[in-house]
Computed example of a mutant assay.
Amino acid sequence: MSQPNGEPLVGAAIVIYEIDESTYPRKKELIGITFTIEGGVYGISLLVDKTYSMVAYS
């Protein structure tokens, strides 16, 4: 997987969804929202062996 390019988004909201690939159609469940701080840094704990979708809004 390549590294993202560009400038980090300061003050962005990041929405995290867990994707359940064991069902058809796949289920998408909102598990949290975090916000970036100065420098575009954010932190959130994610479980291993899960699939996630992260969407950033500026």
Rank of each mutant, 00 (worst) to 15 (best):
residue 1 M to D: 07
residue 4 P to A: 09
residue 6 G to H: 02
residue 6 G to T: 04
residue 7 E to H: 06
residue 8 P to I: 03
residue 8 P to T: 03
residue 9 L to Q: 08
residue 9 L to E: 05
residue 10 V to E: 11
residue 11 G to Q: 05
residue 11 G to T: 04
residue 13 A to N: 09
residue 14 I to H: 01
residue 14 I to S: 01
residue 15 V to M: 12
residue 16 I to V: 15
residue 16 I to N: 01
residue 16 I to W: 05
residue 17 Y to G: 00
residue 18 E to R: 15
residue 19 I to S: 00
residue 19 I to G: 00
residue 20 D to K: 01
residue 22 S to R: 12
residue 23 T to K: 15
residue 24 Y to R: 14
residue 25 P to N: 08
residue 25 P to Q: 09
residue 26 R to Y: 11
residue 26 R to V: 14
residue 27 K to Q: 13
residue 27 K to R: 15
residue 27 K to G: 06
residue 28 K to I: 15
residue 28 K to N: 10
residue 29 E to H: 06
residue 30 L to N: 06
residue 32 G to M: 05
residue 32 G to C: 04
residue 33 I to P: 00
residue 34 T to R: 01
residue 36 T to C: 02
residue 36 T to V: 03
residue 40 G to A: 07
residue 40 G to W: 02
residue 40 G to R: 00
residue 43 G to T: 13
residue 44 I to F: 15
residue 44 I to N: 10
residue 44 I to V: 14
residue 46 L to E: 07
residue 46 L to D: 07
residue 46 L to R: 04
residue 47 L to G: 11
residue 47 L to H: 12
residue 48 V to D: 14
residue 49 D to V: 04
residue 49 D to H: 14
residue 50 K to G: 04
residue 51 T to A: 10
residue 51 T to W: 01
residue 52 Y to D: 02
residue 52 Y to A: 02
residue 53 S to F: 09
residue 56 A to M: 08
residue 56 A to F: 05
residue 57 Y to L: 11
residue 57 Y to Q: 04
residue 57 Y to C: 06
residue 57 Y to T: 07
residue 58 S to H: 04
